[in-house]
Amino acid sequence: MNIVVLVKQVPDTWSERRLRADDSTLDRDAADAVINELDDYAIEEGLRLQEAHGGEVTIVSMGPQKAADAIRKALSMGADKAVHVTDEALRGSDGLVTSAVLASVLGRTGFDLVILGSESTDARMGTLAAMLAERLGVPQMSFASKVETDGSKITIHRQADYGYDTVEGALPAVVSVVEKINEPRYPSFKGIMAAKKKPVETLSLADLGMDASQAGLAASATQVVSFANRPPRAAGTIVTDEGDGGAKAAEFLASRKFI
């Protein structure tokens, strides 16, 4: 099975993240860059499906030079090879542009299954799976907490508030995964050594037959118009337990519609 896992490098959620003052895009130099958390789960799922069905796992990432770190981690976990799309003109690309670029890469690599995280921790749009599936003309299997396939058909559990739906489709398909799906492995040191020898193809927009006018901020359909810092958190309320603490806690939860 030809499995492609999409990986994005994002600013670490544990560090302070900022938007740039000049063009309101993410300030990628301000924070440490790490692999998007959900992408670890996507890679793990790809590797597990490969272990069960054979074939290859290819990592595809669009991002600046230093996204090579995210690719290295994915290869160290066990993926076979990678494609890194990097081009100065891509900066500021929104979901629509990103999906066009990735669809073009997927056209080159071919695929039976595309796996990605259901959202990235930076933009948190959660729309890429849908856009890609539409561009590629294949089924979209989103929010998967479980994936099963026999090589031609694919069945997933789609996570929902009330539990899950069982969704079935035909391969090739695009699957986005949620955190519940598995427990990602750590890169092993042998994997880190092996990754040094794995092929990574670096592509520019021109290599994909695209030009700068089709990418970046200018070509994006959405733009950040303005932004403001989050207001400081209001002080919490302290409830003194006078023997009725339980009832007061329940009251509070009910007022917030938690119960």
Binding site: A68, D69, R72, K73, S76, Y186, P187, F189, I192, M193, A195, K196
Partner: peptide, 10 residues
Amino acid sequence: SDEERLVRDT
């Protein structure tokens, strides 16, 4: 090196 950093982070 890149590999040493990955060892560190792992």
